Computed example of a mutant assay.
Amino acid sequence: MATPMDLLRSNLSRVRIPEPTNRIYKQECCVSFDTPKSEGGLFVDMNSFLAFGKEYVGWNFEKTGNPVYLHIKQTKKLVSEDRPLKKPTLLAIGTL
């Protein structure tokens, strides 16, 4: 069975390296309103640099044949309540 790295190496010729003039659309899906904060995150096609939501990745793959995607997902990190606050308790201006 092929490992994910072997699959990536076999499709490396389809991956483009972005140049300074390329626009990379990674803030929102180009078909729906999915963002990196959505449940499935975003998948950026590494050839066209267009982002797709989880349900549209298959559609894009069938259309273009590009199998390599960058998965971007943002999750909220919970802050524990027992952590001390790092807010300043004193404010002193012009003191030594």
Results as ranks from 00 to 15, higher is better:
L42D: 03
S32Y: 12
K37I: 03
T64F: 03
G53Q: 01
K63V: 01
W59F: 14
C30D: 13
K37F: 08
V44W: 09
S32M: 11
E62A: 09
G41C: 06
D34S: 09
S48K: 14
G41A: 10
Y56Q: 12
D45S: 07
N60K: 02
N66D: 13
K63M: 02
K54H: 12
G40M: 01
K54R: 14
F43C: 01
S48Y: 12
N47I: 11
K37V: 06
E39V: 10
S38V: 07
V57F: 05
E39R: 12
W59N: 13
C30N: 14
G40V: 03
M46I: 08
A51L: 08
V44N: 08
G65S: 06
C30G: 12
S38T: 12
C30L: 13
K37Q: 06
T64K: 08
C30W: 10
G40A: 00
K37M: 07
K37L: 07
C30I: 15
N47E: 15
L50N: 08
V31F: 06
T35N: 10
W59V: 13
D45P: 04
L50Y: 10
W59G: 12
D45K: 02
F61W: 07
S38Y: 10
G58R: 11
F49P: 05
G65R: 05
K63R: 10
P36S: 04
T64G: 03
V44A: 08
V57W: 05
S48I: 12
T64R: 07
E62W: 00
F52N: 05
C30K: 14
F33R: 15
C30F: 11
G41L: 06
L42P: 01
L50I: 03
K37R: 09
F52C: 06
N66I: 11
L42A: 03
D45N: 14
V57Q: 09
K37Y: 06
A51C: 05
P36Y: 05
G40S: 02
P36C: 03
E39H: 11
D45E: 02
G53N: 00
S38M: 07
F61L: 07
V44I: 15
L50H: 07
K37P: 00
M46T: 15
G53H: 03
V44F: 06
C30M: 14
D45C: 12
